[in-house]
Design a protein around this nucleic acid. Sequence first.
DNA 1: TCCTGCGATGCCGTTCGGGTATCGCAGCAT
DNA 2: ATGCTGCGATACCCGAACGGCATCGCAGGA
Lengths: 291, 291
Amino acid sequence: MFTLAQLTGFVAVAEELHFTRAAERLRMTQPPLSRQIQQLEQSLGVSLLERTNRSVRLTPAGRAFLSEARRLLRQAEHATVAVRQVATGRGGRVAVGFTAAAAHAGLGDLLGAAREAIPDAEVVLRELVTRDQLEALAEGSLDLGMVRPTAIGPDLRSRPASREALLAAVPLTHPLAGSEAPLTPSDFHGQEFLMYSPVEARYFHELLISLFRAARVAPVFTQYLSQVHSILALVDAGWGVALVPESARRMRFAGVRFLPLELPEPEPVELALVWRAANDNPALHVLLRQL
Amino acid sequence: MFTLAQLTGFVAVAEELHFTRAAERLRMTQPPLSRQIQQLEQSLGVSLLERTNRSVRLTPAGRAFLSEARRLLRQAEHATVAVRQVATGRGGRVAVGFTAAAAHAGLGDLLGAAREAIPDAEVVLRELVTRDQLEALAEGSLDLGMVRPTAIGPDLRSRPASREALLAAVPLTHPLAGSEAPLTPSDFHGQEFLMYSPVEARYFHELLISLFRAARVAPVFTQYLSQVHSILALVDAGWGVALVPESARRMRFAGVRFLPLELPEPEPVELALVWRAANDNPALHVLLRQL
DNA sequence: TCCTGCGATGCCGTTCGGGTATCGCAGCAT
DNA sequence: ATGCTGCGATACCCGAACGGCATCGCAGGA
């Protein structure tokens, strides 16, 4: 097999059509360059240059090989640049997981930060529930997760990503819909309430439970649902009232009115970033530093 | 700059994730392989492998570089194969010129032969008049020309490519059109005859002139045209009779009858291959040997 | 605590790559 | 014809590099 040094030698000679000048360009003397070319030709089993001692010309094979050689050198160049980008985190790939809810809240910011911090890197997105994200993080198939705060293993690290407020979602036909002042938890006492599933939406379930308990309020839970949009669909259909994260406002339902809610903690809905402590992906750390 | 040998070393280690086994695969011992990788990493300024003395793992940069390295090696492989094909004439490129007339007669055979003899080569076709072909051949931008026999310079070589008969083309309404027996030149004496241009179709012009002179026959030349298809169009319109190469039979004109012609030389229309004697394109010579 | 497996390191002989000097050849001037 | 000149090839030399052997150092398992 030939070497890349032989290729650069060949390209130089092919461009200069003059061994001595080509050698100067390569900052070496002519004899070793001659031998480089001879060795290249020998390793290919093909004559690339036709030299009389007055002139140097490319053979057809040489012409064909010239473009191959240039391509190889360009690619070698590219490989070193690319690998340095990956090593410094400017390039490479970051696999980001997000929950369906995060798609509305923090994901946009995250992607914006990624474009800023690691513009040459590839960001691979995967929608996964929190549990699957934690699993994927542990096994290394995910670099960064966006999840609701939850207990995490010792080899994972996390950081708050964003907070947002809760809004009341009430049917337009509902008496509360006309309210001018912000609602309070006690407004929901005895109301038919669309609740989050304690299994699939544990975070919201527990958040609302503790919220109502603190306010000594007891709505009537008529349904248990896991997705915000299904809850809103039911509100729209007049099945009850609900509390949803502020980002749900973007979903437009004709029969739903969003009302502010007064709480001791104005932004109780948290979203966290999680990653594996031992993750050595440089792009991940550059991204985390940006966030 | 790294070397290709370092790349093969890296790929082997990355695949085995085990220096000693990788070294065996490369038929060398482990220490030089370790050093190869170290040098590669140093020349990239990037750590590619994370080794404890119990295990070897790829860093993210290493993972990125692995595919680059594989691609480079594959391409180097491809370059050697390709250049050998060019050198043996199986690959490469042959620029073939042809006259409009040759497109009907010999070009099909030529392309068939090329597919047979140099299947991996690229055949570039250019339609040019004979004079331009000779010029392009001399300056090296054409490898092979298909032209009517003509005087050629000393640095060109030629060889007959094909011969074909002349046919009489007469309007269906013409008295000769009913003839059962083959025509002879004397049938054209005094006839209104569509002649080839002495400038743009010199070959045919001179061929017919000498043919009529030998038969002591004098048609009446009503028009001078350069292209066979224009001549046939005029025959179709009843403007006169003509002599055309047999390959023109493929052009269908409703009002034209083709009749065989009896001549001392049954196939007087020649087509020649021309190339530059000094042309060193191997594919050209493989092709010429096939023809 | 010892053993073992494995990558790194030290050292050595050979090879190889680059340098200098020189050759050989063709075109050119005289 | 003859010598000059320019240029690629060749001969030879030296230092760096490469591969091999022996050995070290370290971590995990017995």
